[in-house]
């Protein structure tokens, strides 16, 4: 049951990622760090995606994990109700 649940959530998320092209269109402009590449004087810079893009990414990722977390908490609560009936006594 758990395997099916996890599989469904992650396949669903992957499909969502593959279908959605929205965040990719955002120009990467937020963090730009100028880096001098040693003695060769080759200028290189590292660029991180924009804040907006990263927030979208975070939401896409966090959402399925949150669903999984809620399902787990519900299952744990359900199991805990029966804990005193069938677990080992000290």
């Amino acid at each position: 049951m758990y395997a099916k649940m996890i599989f469904t959530i992650f396949v669903g998320t992957s499909l969502l990622f593959s279908l959605d092209t929205g965040p990719n269109t955002v120009v990467c402009d937020l963090v730009v760090m100028q880096v001098q590449a040693g003695q060769n004087n080759i200028e290189t810079k590292i660029e991180f995606p924009s804040f907006e893009y990263r927030i979208n990414l975070l939401l896409y990722f966090v959402f399925p994990v949150l669903i999984l977390l809620i399902l787990l908490i519900l299952k744990i609560r359900q199991l805990d109700l029966h804990l005193d009936d069938d677990s080992r006594t000290n």
Partner: peptide, 16 residues
């Protein structure tokens, strides 16, 4: 209280 069974109770808590 009483001990927690390792499977499935504690494994699920670990996953959480």
């Amino acid at each position: 209280g009483k001990d927690i069974p390792f499977y499935p109770n504690f494994v699920l808590r670990d996953l959480r």
